[in-house]
Design a protein around this nucleic acid. Structure first.
Lengths: 206, 206, 206, 206
DNA sequence: TATGAATGAGGTTTCATTCAT
DNA sequence: TATGAATGAAACCTCATTCAT
């Protein structure tokens, strides 16, 4: 712990903030949200509790901050278009696979998020708003790149994407954090892919 | 326990247990699980803290107890058969509607459950096991009543029911406790009904 | 526990008192004094807590009662005389052995006693007074039976007996309940026997 | 820890730890271990309960800490050698006197120790281990200083010292905390001195 | 800017005892 | 006499937050 070969951020504000958030998320994953105290975060991060409170004005603040980096690019345009126009099974499956893999890689963060939302729904508002904005912006971008999609009302595309994304999200959460009804990941992926496409068709084809 | 022939004197044991659970659930709904103390439960229920601990050996125990009443008969045989054999849309929709209505009526309990699972997954184990057992038993019963279903392997039916039920559950939870992407309940119900049937077909038709 | 083949005392006061004390002592041995509650005693004894408080007005009262039967005859006259007059090694050794064996057999009671004394010294007063009386009476009896001893002042004999008995008691307690410095019981017994005789000689021979 | 060159600001950490232990021991002496709450300790020490738990992670921890200061140098080499080689009565008596005096001076601590051992034997383990180590180390030192003793096996000396020390300890405890059979301290001291020497001879002379 | 000692309200739980039945 | 539901003070301990240094 003390011979951690990572004295990268010392004296720099950015690095400390990052360190606090990372430590916070890591500890939540290890011990559960309610068992992580700010004092512990400080200790594990090798900082004083005073320093933590210099950068974050409350525990909830750290939680909020921990959600910011969450929304990443998980799909590129060409894939999105293939999925939205021809409902390409393989591309969709790949998307679902990547999403699951990402959730597994950042298991801690997503689990912490799950807990945080249950405990403090307000914390979720920000995240959801960011997500809405992201998807709206993305769908607009997609429409600019494809003639067929351009004819569909923007809100329809946005709605379809939102629903299918939420479905994906909720099924993966269910699988990872609650109960899985599937034998293996492959089965989950296939099932989710089918429902994902089903959802898109439902909203885009009429 | 309820037909125990000894109402001799003591002031209504059953009623008190129920009162504690109800108070607990009500408060959780108002303030969130971690913000509800056992002392507050006692106070709000008009009981002493000692009495609460006479009936429940820990806070977690109250939570456990609150889950027991959760799994109720939400479907009858003839409906189940209609859904499983001819995938009847209206019957399924009615089922989904009833499920949503039930969740809204017992909004507090289900929200508490959502929170509790995120915080303490162990509490969930019991519930999930009960649910598994319930569905397995139900699927066996259904097979006894229908010649066509009798030919399908029991575990296939059970799996299909489990998946569709979990889908229903997860979509309703998402809608009520996280974010809704739907304009109104009707839209949610229709969407969920379609996915529900889609899931059943996926597993039963092959 | 319920099929205990011992419905001996039911309806009789004496039996219930005995049952309560025995249960109390047994539980103390199992869980330590501070971890035994009156409610638990009642439960384990198959009685209601109300009944326990009908017979004992407080927890301390039970403790007091538990000490009454403690002082037993652990030596007979002829042995005592052999020890007090010719300091017979083998007889003394036998006495020490018996004392140790008795402490091991009633380990629970003596351990409970040890704890009780540490926690509530008052409880000990009674016991010690009884012991003093017992030894005084015994030494008088002994003097009536032996011409040589009759010439020694009663209080000298009594003192010698008291000291050697306390030495025996304290060494056995040390061995059983604290730390033993001996390889085995035999070594303890021999050491104690020698000190016991040494003490007697010290006070009787001058 | 005490020569740590950082008296920069904070209000005397060392002093507070000492204060907590002293207060704890004083209160135990007045009211008995089980009747002393950590809150009371804090109040009486003029500290907040949080401060107490900053320095000790549990009530038992305070108890443990209170034992550390117990094993002190109660004998010097030249005295030890006089006692171990020529069984010098006066030197031994002085040792016993000093031991008794020390127990009387720190009456509270030793009484607390007595109680603590009876209630929680684990707490005692540490103390006993430290004592064993101390005596072993001491006996080795003694052998280095005396040609005669050097010829005796180290474990024989160690055993003899251990036994006689425990005898001393147990007799003084019996006298102070349980029942005294002695008219005055002088009588106890003489009796104990004789048994102490008797024990040493028993193990060293053969 | 960094520190970390100090705070104390509040959390969960226990248990000796009472008293209505 | 027997019951056992009810009591509630008090126990141990946590932790977000502050502020003097």
């Amino acid at each position: 712990m003390s011979d951690n070969p990572e004295p990268k951020f010392h004296r720099d504000k950015e690095g400390k903030i990052k360190l606090i958030i990372e430590t916070f998320v890591r500890l939540i994953n290890q011990k559960g949200y309610t068992n992580v105290s700010t004092n512990l975060v400080a200790k594990e991060a090798g900082l004083s509790i005073g320093t933590v409170y210099n950068y974050f004005k409350s525990k909830e603040d750290i939680l909020q901050a921990a959600f910011q980096g969450t929304i990443e690019d998980f799909i590129d345009f060409s894939d999105a278009i293939k999925i939205l126009t021809i409902y390409d099974y393989d591309t969709t499956k790949m998307l679902v696979s990547k999403f699951l893999a990402s959730h597994k890689e950042y298991y801690q963060l997503h689990k912490a998020q799950d807990q945080a939302i249950a405990i403090n729904h307000d914390v979720f508002q920000n995240y959801q708003k960011n997500l809405d904005d992201y998807i709206l912006a993305f769908s607009k971008q997609v429409q600019l790149s494809d003639a067929h999609l351009a004819k569909i009302p923007a809100e329809t595309i946005s709605k379809a994407m939102m629903l299918s994304f939420n479905l994906l999200d909720t099924l993966v959460h269910q699988h990872l954090f609650r109960t899985s009804n599937f034998e293996n990941d492959e089965e989950l992926i296939e099932y989710t892919t089918k429902l994902f496409i089903f959802t898109l068709k439902l909203y885009l084809k009429e």
